[in-house]
Simulated scan of single mutants.
Amino acid sequence: MSTTPTINWSEDQSARPARPARSAHWHSESCAPPPRRVVVADDSTKAATAYQLACEGTALLWQGDFHNARQLLRAMARRIDRKANPARPDATPAESFHLHRRARGHRARVLGRLLVLLDDDHSLTLRRAPDVRQACTEAYGPPRGERAVSLTELLGVIGAHQWREKGVEVPALGEGVRIHPHYGVFSPVRGEYIDLVARAPLPSAAGGGRAFDLGTGTGVLAAVLARRGLSHVVATDIGPRALVCARENAARLGLADRVEVTGPALYPEGRADLVVCNPPWLPARPTSTVEQGVYDPDGTMLHGFLNGLAGHLRPGGEGWLVLSDLAEHLGLRTREDLLTAITTAGLHVTDRLDTSPHHPRARDTTDPLHSARAAEVTSLWRLTPD
């Protein structure tokens, strides 16, 4: 008996003969439960009606024009944004962060109730719909029957496919060299942390030696280390999509013989001359696969890296912790917390390299978290055992 969740809806009962009730498998990358009530929506559906139904928990299965569905989604988003509670001037940074996350979660839930139906070959049979079969196969794997997904999720799948095709240029790897992120794998669009790893002085023991890249994602830092002369880089990740992505990028860059990708353990077997870790920067719970690259509940990965480092370094080796201080500006972690964790793990800070972010959100004064983002510094902490 299948345990795959489903949604159920009734077609237009005014048709003669009446169309029977239908069902389809339900899929959500954020693990949202299937909606209990689903109604059919099309080009005649008004934005106000769609917004009200979605706020009440009713999902709308779209059967009209694809571009009109996108317009409806934007109209619903505008209504949500207009009704959003303004930031409280007396709120602490941590309170502002949690209020912002709550508002973003509400927005995602409401917009996620506009659904589309993928056919049993991943095709989308809507007027003016793009061919999404390749994008869906990359994200979901081979087709396994009809499935309903939110339009917001499908648009993310389409966008991820475009990024995968185009790639992200990484100057630290050479002029015109690109890393190609997969769906569900955090894209290296913020190059400042990559530049830190590219310019930090290598420990004397690491020349031509062995390195670990923990939480490799796309494999970009493993590639940088290999290009810097490390003869064997072992890249780890907990995510199956990241493992495939990192292997493909290493092969595309001609580094498959020097970059070994493995998982799901944080640390591989053995010791290394250099261990690099760029853990998620914010100690909060992710709500989707992609958010796992940003949010680390209770700093689990950070503490796992620190507590395991001394036991995985060769004599003369170093650990590099690449970490933003955004959590400190948001009141989610203090600098004392970080330094205490480093000391408790039996480690010593030998140096620290800092850089400021260059992404547009750091300059967006309308962002509720602007003051924290504007003050953010990303650091590479050079750590050695006591």
Rank of each mutant, 00 (worst) to 15 (best):
T3M: 08
Q13A: 13
A15E: 11
R19Y: 04
W26H: 11
P35F: 13
R36W: 12
R36Q: 13
V38P: 12
V40R: 13
D42S: 14
S44E: 13
T45A: 14
L53R: 10
E56M: 05
E56H: 05
G57F: 02
W62T: 08
W62Y: 12
F66V: 12
F66D: 14
L73Y: 01
R74N: 04
R79V: 01
I80Q: 07
K83W: 00
K83N: 08
R88I: 09
P89D: 14
D90P: 00
A103C: 13
A103L: 10
R104H: 01
G105Q: 10
A108H: 07
V110L: 03
L114S: 01
D119E: 08
L126H: 11
D131A: 10
V132A: 07
A135L: 02
G141Y: 04
A148K: 11
V157C: 05
V157E: 00
E165Q: 08
E165N: 09
A172K: 07
E175H: 10
Y183D: 09
P188Q: 04
R190A: 13
I194N: 03
D195Q: 15
A198F: 12
S204C: 09
D213T: 07
L214F: 03
T216F: 06
T218D: 01
L221E: 05
L225K: 12
G229R: 01
D237R: 04
I238W: 01
A246P: 05
A251P: 04
D257E: 06
E260F: 06
V261E: 02
V261N: 02
T262S: 01
P264S: 10
P264R: 08
A265R: 14
Y267L: 10
P268Q: 04
L274H: 00
V276S: 03
N278T: 09
W281F: 05
T287V: 14
G293D: 00
V294L: 12
D296M: 09
P297Y: 12
M301K: 02
M301Y: 04
L302K: 04
L306S: 14
L306N: 08
G308Q: 07
G308S: 09
L309A: 12
A310D: 15
A310V: 10
A310N: 07
E318N: 00
W320Y: 13
L323C: 06
D325P: 09
L326N: 02
L326F: 00
G331T: 11
R333G: 03
T334I: 00
R335D: 10
T350S: 15
T355M: 11
R361C: 07
A362Q: 06
R363P: 01
T365G: 08
L369D: 02
H370T: 06
E376K: 15
W381R: 05
R382D: 13
R382W: 06
R382K: 13
L383N: 10
P385M: 15
